[in-house]
Nucleic acid binder design. Structure first.
Lengths: 107, 107
DNA sequence: ACAAGATACCTCGTCTGTCAAGGTATATTT
DNA sequence: AAATATACCTTGACAGACGAGGTATCTTGT
């Protein structure tokens, strides 16, 4: 069973930042990683992903640069900024709180 | 800190059903209960609540009737149906899965 | 007596994130 | 030569949340 987008909603940015915390990456790869890590239960659709990238960049949480692939399609890499790291900590704490609250409500 | 609506989104219906599992209730009361149970961290806004009621009724998960208050404002009560109970179990399982998945993604 | 606040219901229109559908280009496999 | 995988992107529609507004009743403080 896959996880509905309404449940994932609001976590997209945190999920992306969490990935960039480990290492710089690019859209296609991030997408694949998320699916793999969750046994295909979470899938961020491309359009969703790219709009999240725009928001994160706008907010100054990520920076972007083009990879220098000699071969194959070009890749746009993303890296997390200091501000992004701080934002991630907030997202993370929000998640912990939300988790506790929802657990209390869904007995 | 309060929980953003984007994080709560997708759980509204489950939260309402969970309440009706315990006992029949009405909008205003449900709203208060949710806030109390979560120390004011979760607040479903009225408009949100009522639109969820409409959806749940449409889906056949809840039934509604007017209370017979002799005094005070009239109350519209909601009660969960058998179908609603089954739906709740699905919502609940979805939540457990989503929780596990997001926990994996937000290290 | 009157105002303010709490209880209780509701609707309309706006906003925002998701995503289906469409597009481009390159490399590899059949 | 066609299909598949990699890799990027945009547009427009949709759905859920909610701010702002409304109605009516009862209680409390002054």
């Amino acid at each position: 069973m896959s996880i509905t987008s309404d449940i994932l909603r609001g976590h997209t940015e945190a999920i992306i930042l969490a990935h960039l915390l480990e290492q710089d990456s690019y859209g296609y790869q991030i997408n694949k990683d998320i699916m793999k890590k969750t046994d295909n239960r979470c899938e961020l659709k491309e359009a969703t992903l790219y709009s999240a990238f725009r928001r994160l960049e706008q907010a100054g949480y990520i920076r972007t640069y083009w990879g220098d692939e000699k071969v194959g399609a070009r890749r746009r890499y993303y890296s997390i900024t200091e501000e992004g790291r701080r934002a991630y900590q907030v997202y993370k704490r929000e998640w912990e709180e939300a988790k506790a609250a929802i657990d209390k409500l869904l007995k």
